[in-house]
Design a protein around this nucleic acid. Sequence first.
RNA 1: GGCGCGUUGGAGAAGCGGCUUAACUCACCAGCCUUUCACGCUGGCAUUCACGGGUUCGAAUCCCGUACGCGUCACCA
Length: 502
Amino acid sequence: MKVRVRFAPSPTGLLHIGGARSALFNYLYAAGSGGGLVLRSEDTDRERSRVEYEESIADALDWLGIAWQEGLRVGGECAPYRQSERLEVYQRYVEKMAAQGYVYECFCSEEELEAERQELMARGELPRYLGRCAGLTPEEKQDKRDQGMIPSLRFQVRPGDPVVIEDQVRGEVVFDREGIGDFIIVKSDGLPTYNFAVVVDDLEMNITHVIRGEEHLSNTPRQVLIFEALDETPPQFAHISLILNDHGKKMTKRDGDTAVADYREKGYLPEALINFVGLLGWSPPGEKEILTIDELIELFSLERVSKAPAVFDKNKLDFFNAHYIRECSGERLAELIFPFIRTKLAEQEDLSQKDFLQGSFSGEGVAGGQIPSPWLIAFAETIQEKIKTLAEARDFVDVLCGPHVGDLDEEAREVLRGSAVGVVREAFRSRLEGVSELDGVRVKSILKQLGKDLGLKGKDIFMPLRVSVTGQMHGPDLDRVFALLGVENILARMGETEKYLS
RNA sequence: GGCGCGUUGGAGAAGCGGCUUAACUCACCAGCCUUUCACGCUGGCAUUCACGGGUUCGAAUCCCGUACGCGUCACCA
């Protein structure tokens, strides 16, 4: 039988890291076994569901490179893929189960239910519904209706053997039927509850494997009971552990960046996020951890999914991101960086006419858009090894653009007070005379010759020049920096730092 | 509280009864490389696998108990 898995988020918020991992694991499993992935929207919560969220979730998956063959946006044989549009389907199943006597109307109010729960808890018993409305006579029901009460529908849990779940990750998990009270399958607003809708949809959509978060494990017996009442075989279950924050708690919005979109905005690459998230609760068989999505597909298996929860470690994410940034071609990095530095670049008044702003982007780029200018590519290559996120590129704009040096800190000023500084600067300046185009090779040879002529080595010649031109103690290789700035800017900046000389 | 799940270094983890005096990766520390910072390279970082019992010639690996953590007990998913 062909593997069919699904990712079924409820559109009540952005796609968060945990959801992304569930989607990823489903995707990897499907792709690795020649199966398919279905994207379904579980929007039965009328209050909280919103189409915008559904869109943003699909966008996030697209961006990550997690592709689904069926469902939202792409359609398919089992359409519709939005639960709110499948009400007739659920109705059919309600009737099927009602015919077997599994369904009854419940008129209990929220207050009554709460009171019952409290009482059971106080007695130290399992809070659950005791079936008060199960024995209502037709007259009593009519009476309640006449009073304007709208019933919900409950599933009757019958006594029997414990429910055994063969979980692909956790092994055999056993639940007692007595601990499960009759639960609601259709709310009084006519919409099915989660536990009912998943079962129907997984059945109708021929889902073979349900891979989802551990928080669903305790719900699984209810779902199995419904499968049983329907006389159907449940799919294989695989419950993956939770992702914890660094305090060991379940990651929630309050922990700050939990949405995939947050990371995209901060300048993380999709391949870095995929690599990182893929290693959360799963480990590859070999020693290699830097893995592309295709390699993950190749290596992924449920057997290697960990039972223990995983802590989200931003350090490691940063490591992956820095790695993938370093792997980019200059052209792609330039394209990726552009949106992050666009406004900053625009502030550089004297550079605004340079081609990297608009004119640079014409023709076909690697990402299918436009081609970045040679300058932008050089800029990208210059900072490539310095940044962990794309957003950090912003910090380099002022340093590598324009005729102005920012304020120098005390350490930098100290460097310029050195005795040989004036000589080095003058020698450098004179060598720049008559030079119109600077490139890395040219800069290198100028600096080399300079050192030779003055009889100075390394630090003594490079630090004064670095500080004179960039105002900084650290930064990318000087030859690249100078080539990027150009003669005019270098001279202008040296003029500005003149005042710091002793 | 009931039920369920988990517990190997700061983090991700490998380990599936002897090959483990516990791989690998991130972080951290030291050294090397280098015109700075980074990158890269080399080395260091758990005598010990939550704790206590037991089984066994032998246990991180199997069993039991305890502790701790997490999840779940909704007309939310």
